[in-house]
Simulated assay, not measured.
Amino acid sequence: MAAKSANLYARIEPDVKEQAERILSELGIPASNAINMFYKQIILHRGIPFEVKIPSERPVNMYDLSEEQMNEELEKGYTDMKAGRTKSASKAFADIRKDFNL
């Protein structure tokens, strides 16, 4: 007969633990239940239930650009705008947060 419970010991960065537990508390989910859900999703997906990767590109840090490079970036944006390759600011920021785990 399988055990009704098992203990899991893990080292977690204190700040990460605090932030996650604050969110879980707002959701009314004990940390142990969240961990159990995570493990069940690993089983269902037969792996990590989300994409784990290093982004191939990082956002351009505008402070590191020369004036010429800045003008090139602005020109790219202007060209995209003229060609109709645009999206709302909220969609753009949502995509950035998703792509770069922000």
Score class of each variant (00 low, 15 high):
S32G: 07
T86W: 11
Y9D: 11
K17I: 06
L65E: 02
S25F: 02
T79W: 11
L8H: 04
I35C: 07
L74F: 08
I54D: 13
K40Y: 10
T86S: 13
S25K: 08
K87G: 09
F93K: 02
S90G: 00
R85P: 04
K87I: 11
E13M: 13
Q19G: 05
V16S: 11
L8M: 11
R85L: 15
L44H: 02
K91P: 00
P49N: 04
S90Q: 13
E72F: 06
I29T: 09
I12W: 10
N61F: 10
I23E: 03
E21T: 01
V16A: 13
K40F: 00
F93V: 04
A31K: 07
V60T: 13
I43P: 00
D99I: 04
E72D: 08
N36S: 07
R46G: 14
P49W: 01
K76Q: 07
K53W: 05
I43N: 01
P59I: 01
A89S: 12
F38M: 05
L44Y: 06
E68F: 02
Y39K: 09
D64R: 08
I12A: 12
K87P: 02
K76S: 10
Y9Q: 07
A94H: 00
Y39C: 09
G28D: 04
S88I: 11
M81K: 15
E13H: 12
P30S: 00
P59Y: 04
I96Y: 10
E73P: 01
D80T: 11
R46T: 09
P55Q: 09
P55F: 03
L24P: 01
E18S: 04
A20Q: 06
L44T: 06
A34D: 02
K82T: 10
Q69P: 00
M81G: 14
G28L: 01
S25A: 10
A10M: 14
N61P: 12
E13D: 15
I43A: 08
S32P: 00
Q41G: 02
E13N: 15
I54T: 12
S90K: 09
Y39S: 07
